[in-house]
Write a protein that binds this DNA or RNA. Structure first.
Lengths: 126, 126
DNA sequence: AATATTAATGCGACCAAGTTGCATTAATTT
DNA sequence: AAATTAATGCAACTTGGTCGCATTAATATT
């Protein structure tokens, strides 16, 4: 099941690159310009997550947001980092702040999902 | 708009007390014994959150879970604490582990939502 | 104790996010 | 150029959660 290159996949990646933030399917659909089916966008995003190109954040609004893993690398973000969801501009940002925790070895931790919510620095002064 | 005491509200609280964990509407409905409407349970839960009796956690499954704030107090949990969602027994636990982070003052942080996901200590040995 | 007030409930309809089945299209292999 | 099968579009569906509205019942008032 080798992956194939398509215009849709490229378009999704380029939108994520250009905004530099984590985006929901809806936000991507709005920004992407061309008309791409909702289900297709979800499938592209899910595939990228499987392939380690994107990571998925579930925010406290219950929705999924997707962010480039490369973006995180560039800014030297740790594997598990905080995310900030701005309620005004409706974007999610990967923060350089690492998530630290200690937990009994009896627990098997598989995923870490930390989201701060509020007004981001761009929106707080406007 | 003074709150009124009802059997439904008591039943919801007592289920949460008896399990000692954060529960979704669905889990509460299953455990509660009596037949209570879905919308009503949600309304009860939302009211309790407004009143500071419960707090709401949105897990990485995108669903809302509700936990007693008193439970947290008892175990001396900090205001912002980690939560652990077990994928096997489908419960969420409030952990005593506090959430620490530092972020630029330019951001206005209003909510903190941190969930670890995996297999809890009760399920890992079974 | 009887009545008035209005919060709480049940029901059904509704919405939004996300997924899935299936026929069709098109990227890669041969 | 033909064959293979991943990717897409569409519609239907699922699930979590909310809302409007008529009805019920907890509290306040008499």
């Amino acid at each position: 099941m080798r992956r194939r290159n398509t215009a849709t996949k490229d378009a999704v990646l380029s939108v994520l690159h250009s905004t530099g933030k984590a985006m929901s399917q809806g936000a991507i659909e709005k920004e992407i310009g061309v008309d791409i089916n909702r289900a297709t966008i979800y499938r592209v995003l899910n595939r990228y997550c499987e392939d380690g190109v994107l990571h998925r954040i579930v925010a406290d609004d219950g929705r999924q947001y997707f962010a480039l893993c490369v973006e995180c690398d560039k800014k030297q973000k740790p594997l598990h980092h905080f995310h900030f969801r701005c309620e005004k501009c409706e974007t999610i940002e990967c923060l350089p702040e690492p998530v630290h925790f200690s937990i009994s070895n009896d627990y098997k931790v598989e995923k870490v999902n930390c989201v701060l919510t509020g007004i981001c620095k761009d929106c707080v002064n406007s």
